[in-house]
Simulated scan of single mutants.
Amino acid sequence: MNRHFVTLLGVCLLCLLPVLGAAAPLVAKVNVSSQTMTVIQDGEPLYQWPVSTARSGKWTPRGTFTAQWLSRYHKSSLYNNAPMPFSIFFRGNYAIHGTDQVTRLGQPASAGCVRLHPDHAATLFYMAETVGLSNVRVVIEN
């Protein structure tokens, strides 16, 4: 094989490494319109769950975020110590977390976080712990 071709191929592969490494093994994809979350691991959809995002007058951020930190027994410092079990924080005070208001799942009800059934939040939380925060993406779209 031509030495210049091999060198060029090596350079091309090095340029592609950041792109190839950009795919996260765990993605929590939230659709605000349908109030659902699809959990995708290694490109395979595993779960689809009802969620609650921001109620009228509040806002759930849109975009793609990397998980920042986890808190198993979190309580809100902004909303009267409201329980936020299995929290995965992805943008400042915004998190995916369990809720005790399970009857409201499937409709906007939160102050901006993404609420899940506590069992689903626990599943996602432990998956995030397993793959590591740098490998967790939160995608929120309309």
Rank of each mutant, 00 (worst) to 15 (best):
R55M: 05
T53K: 02
C12K: 00
T36L: 07
N142I: 11
A121G: 03
G98D: 04
E129I: 08
N2T: 00
V6H: 00
T99R: 10
R62C: 08
P118R: 10
N81E: 11
A67H: 07
L9M: 02
L124Q: 03
I88K: 09
L14R: 08
K75L: 15
A22K: 07
M1W: 00
V11T: 01
G10N: 00
V102P: 07
N2L: 00
P25K: 07
N135P: 01
G63L: 03
P85G: 03
S134W: 03
G98N: 02
A111C: 06
V27L: 03
M37Y: 06
K75W: 14
I88P: 11
C12I: 10
V102R: 10
T130S: 13
F125V: 06
T7E: 00
V30R: 09
L14K: 03
H117D: 03
S52W: 07
A128M: 05
A28E: 02
V32Y: 01
A67E: 03
A54W: 03
T53N: 01
G106R: 08
E44G: 04
M37F: 08
M84E: 13
V139F: 02
S77E: 13
S33D: 14
A24H: 04
N142L: 12
S77A: 07
S134C: 01
H97Y: 08
H97F: 08
W69H: 14
D42E: 09
G21F: 02
T66Y: 12
T64Y: 08
K75T: 15
M127H: 06
D119P: 00
A24F: 03
Y73S: 14
P25D: 06
D100Y: 15
T60M: 11
G57L: 07
F89W: 07
G21Y: 00
T64V: 15
A23L: 01
N135L: 01
S87Y: 05
H117S: 13
R62V: 14
F125C: 05
V139W: 06
A28C: 04
I40F: 04
G98Y: 02
L70E: 02
G112M: 12
G21H: 00
S77V: 12
A28K: 06
L14F: 01
T103N: 15
L116Q: 06
S56D: 13
G106P: 12
I40M: 04
R91F: 14
T53Q: 05
L20R: 06
F5M: 01
N80F: 12
S110V: 10
W59Q: 13
N135M: 01
C113G: 03
M84F: 12
R104N: 14
Y47C: 04
V27G: 03
N80C: 09
M127A: 11
R91N: 15
F5V: 06
S34H: 11
S34N: 11
M127K: 11
H74L: 13
G132F: 02
G63P: 05
V102D: 12
D119K: 14
S71G: 12
Y94F: 14
F5C: 00
E141H: 13
G57D: 05
H74A: 15
G63Y: 03
P85D: 09
Q41E: 12
Q48C: 01
